[in-house]
Write a protein that binds this DNA or RNA. Structure first.
Lengths: 164, 164
DNA sequence: TCCCAATATCTTGATGTCAAGATACCGTGG
DNA sequence: CCACGGTATCTTGACATCAAGATATTGGGA
């Protein structure tokens, strides 16, 4: 039985009609991934706003939170979040102004800035994380249990390929 | 046999260690989708730059290109691209300035602005599309043929859920 | 006919991000 | 001990986007 067409199927059909000689199969994967990420980001943005955070803020707090040392350098944060150093400076400024993190100089290398989580920052990021996880559980409910691991495996393969 | 851990597995492990009571399984799906989209967008941005386009430009041209009428209203474009009307005004301004599209008033309703593709715009968007498709084929090569349809099916399920 | 809510687009002001350059610092080799 | 390439962060200027409001138009109901 055919599931009804979604927005991506419409897009694929449109291109297939205009360029009949091309094999547009890959769009079924990549367009859906792009669209999923876009919609999911909107959900996350909305959920985080209730905690007074924006997406970038959460990513920074989250990276520090799950780091064993309890602190990371600005450069590590920028690399892990896939943003430029200038963007990271801005984000840290914002979080410092709210008292959620602190900057401190490295003892051995004065070029390095360590960023550590303050108690209030940890409280907020933990609460936000739990809520985001709740949303993800809710969304993932539409995938049958047995289908989940294969899905994760395919995504892992794609990610390995694209990050190589 | 265990595949080696990727960046998302590290993130998941980090959170699992900090919050042992939570079931973080869904992150394996959603964090990978987000990261994939981010990396893939960077690839697309790079490929499109060679054609003198940015992501938003391509999305606009692409939407008009695959529309049977050969023209769309500003509002339709904004809705289909998931951006605000202000953003769409900017994008159309940019494309009109380069002569890739044209604005014209609707005959029946003076509020409506129709945007149609000019020949040069069609040439550029077609060339860009073929190149993007080539990149997608290349990336999708890492997924075995038999695994592709199940992957598409799961993504379609997720998308249907998240857009509902 | 006239009014008014709904519709479609554009304008304005603020913001987050990036690219490129500036600044400060480290460590090695002469 | 000094110079210099490499490293880490911050600053600057430009830009795409958004939210909210302004403008203009339509279609119906009093």
């Amino acid at each position: 039985m055919e599931r009804h067409m979604d927005a991506v199927d419409e897009i694929i059909d449109g291109w297939q009609r205009v360029m009949p000689s091309e094999d547009v199969e890959p769009m079924g994967v990549f367009s859906r991934i792009g669209r999923l990420a876009q919609r999911f980001d909107a959900l996350r943005r909305n959920a985080l706003a209730a905690h007074g955070l924006q997406l970038g803020d959460f990513d920074v707090l989250s990276a520090i939170r799950r780091c064993p040392d309890g602190a990371m350098t600005a450069g590590q944060l920028a690399k892990e979040n896939l943003v430029t150093s200038g963007t990271m400076t801005n984000r840290i400024d914002r979080l410092v102004a709210r008292g959620l993190v602190g900057r401190s100089a490295d003892v051995a290398d004065a070029r390095i800035v360590r960023v550590q989580l303050h108690p209030e920052g940890q409280r907020i990021v933990d609460a936000a994380f739990v809520e985001l996880l709740r949303i993800e559980h809710e969304l993932l409910g539409c995938i049958r249990d047995a289908d989940r691991q294969p899905l994760v495996d395919r995504l892992r393969e794609l990610l390995a390929r694209i990050e190589a």
